Simulated assay, not measured.
Amino acid sequence: MNTTDHRASIAWLNSRLTLDIFRITRAHVIDDPTATVLLAAISNANTGFMDARPEMSLQYMPLGSIGDDLRRPASISSLARSLNIPRETARGKALALMELGLVEARSEGYVLPASTLTSGPVADAMKYYLASIDALLGDLGELRCFGLKPGVRLATPVHNVAGTAVRLTLAHLLRNVSHALAMATDLTLPNAYVMAAAVHLSGAHFEVGDQTPPAAFGDVRPGPVRGAAVATYLDMPLETVRRQLKKLAATGRLADTPAGYGLDLEAAPREVWEAMQDQALINTRQLVWRLKAVGALTL
């Protein structure tokens, strides 16, 4: 099989990575789905431009190597626009991040300082972020996608490449999030968070692609998922998750069946989900190319 034949698997791996990164942030940094995405968006706005070309990325490979004087502040208006959230919501979440000492306010916007990456809760979460990136690469290698082979991992010592690896991955995740929100403008970030978990746990990407999950992915069985399973996976109150799932079902985003919740391919056309899978494949190809270009992988 070529890489395109693994489109459903690549989309599933991307949803796992996205959910893992945000679950890690909620567990170690701030327990708020919207604030976790906003934190990633601030970081990307501050330093993402440093990865415009591989030769630029190579100058700032370790964590925290981009000085605060080089970081571009993220304005509330740009953050709200990129995440499709109200300005006041973005402002309130940014203030919450500032109160926790995670970001600083400047006249032009918000900055996540280099010290946040090397000490405190974000630094504590970093090993889990890197493990999630490693898992993505390992599974892509098992599938032999994008020229990767079994056994591929982040280069060691990982500290030497961690800064660039995390920056590139955050930019990749935000591209996927922005694309998904653009295709479902009525969804709030909390709605989208719960829906992403339900879609992932129900193996819906494989239903869209009419594919069987690879054995390497473990016990992935496409089919409806119970609200309790989604709540446990997200570590959120069951009633909160059930309320979100019912809203999603009422708007046709999910199907509410006696067996649980799953993707409604009649209400949400298969072509829409295929387009999302195609975009995930394109974005993942770009991520892998960039990681290869800076020597961040053991090939």
Rank of each mutant, 00 (worst) to 15 (best):
N2M: 12
I10P: 01
W12V: 05
L13T: 04
L13N: 07
L13M: 12
I21K: 08
R26G: 06
R26K: 07
A27C: 10
V29W: 07
D31L: 09
D32L: 04
D32H: 13
A35W: 03
L38I: 15
I42V: 15
N46T: 09
T47Y: 00
M50Q: 13
S57C: 03
L58D: 07
L63W: 01
G64Q: 06
L70G: 09
A74E: 04
S75K: 05
L79E: 03
A80Q: 07
S82F: 08
L83T: 05
L95H: 13
G101P: 00
V103Q: 01
V103W: 01
G109A: 12
Y110K: 03
P113I: 07
S115G: 14
T116I: 00
T118W: 00
S119T: 13
V122E: 05
Y129L: 12
Y129C: 06
I133Y: 10
D139K: 15
E142Q: 15
G147I: 07
P150K: 10
T156P: 00
A162W: 04
A165D: 13
L168G: 04
T169Y: 06
T169K: 02
L170G: 04
A171V: 02
L174I: 09
R175N: 10
H179D: 12
A180V: 13
D186Q: 06
L189T: 06
A192T: 05
S202E: 05
G203H: 12
E207T: 14
G209M: 08
P213T: 01
A216C: 14
G218A: 11
P224A: 10
A228P: 00
T232G: 05
P237K: 04
E239G: 09
T240C: 09
A250W: 00
R253V: 11
D256Q: 13
Y261H: 09
G262S: 15
D264A: 08
A267E: 09
M276W: 06
Q279W: 08
A280G: 07
A296M: 07
T298G: 14
